[in-house]
C-alpha cells in the first residue's frame, strides 16, 4: 500500500474567514470552475468619520467536475484563503455532487 504525500494535490480547501471576495481566483481560473457571490455591507465604527464598506461572502463554489487542479487560484489568493489538501475520497453520484460550496470546502480542513 502506498502512503499519500502530505503535499499531494488532492483537493483545494477554503478558509472562508480569510476570503475577501476579491474575485482574483475566479478571474484567473482557466477553467471557469470557481463561482463567488458576495455583497457589500457598511460597518460603522465609533470615532470613524464615515462607515466602512466590507465585502461579505455569500457563496463560494468550486466545480470539481471541471477543475484541472492547476492551483492557480491557490497561487493568486492574496489572503491564503485557499490551500491544497491531500484528500482524494470525494466521488459523487451525479455531476451536481461535484459542486462544493463553502461548508464542504471548509470540511477539507486546515493545511
Amino acid at each position: 500500500m502506498s502512503e499519500i504525500p502530505h503535499q499531494a494535490r488532492g483537493a483545494i480547501a477554503l478558509d472562508a474567514a480569510a476570503c475577501t471576495s476579491c474575485m482574483l481566483c475566479v478571474k484567473e481560473c482557466p477553467d471557469w470552475c470557481i463561482h463567488i457571490e458576495s455583497h457589500n455591507e457598511e460597518v460603522s465604527e465609533p470615532g470613524a468619520r464615515r462607515p466602512r464598506s466590507v465585502a461579505v461572502l455569500d457563496s463560494f463554489t468550486i466545480d470539481w467536475g471541471l477543475c484541472m487542479y492547476c492551483g492557480i487560484c491557490v497561487e493568486v489568493c492574496p489572503f491564503d484563503a485557499l490551500h491544497w489538501v491531500p484528500e482524494h475520497d470525494y466521488p459523487a453520484p451525479d455531476a451536481q455532487g461535484l459542486r462544493h460550496g463553502i461548508a464542504r470546502l471548509e470540511e477539507f480542513g486546515p493545511s
Binding site: M23, V26, K27, W32, S38
Partner: peptide, 9 residues
C-alpha cells in the same frame, strides 16, 4: 453560451 464568472460585481 457560458457567462464568465469573473464578470460578476
Amino acid at each position: 453560451d457560458t457567462p464568465w464568472p469573473g464578470a460578476r460585481r
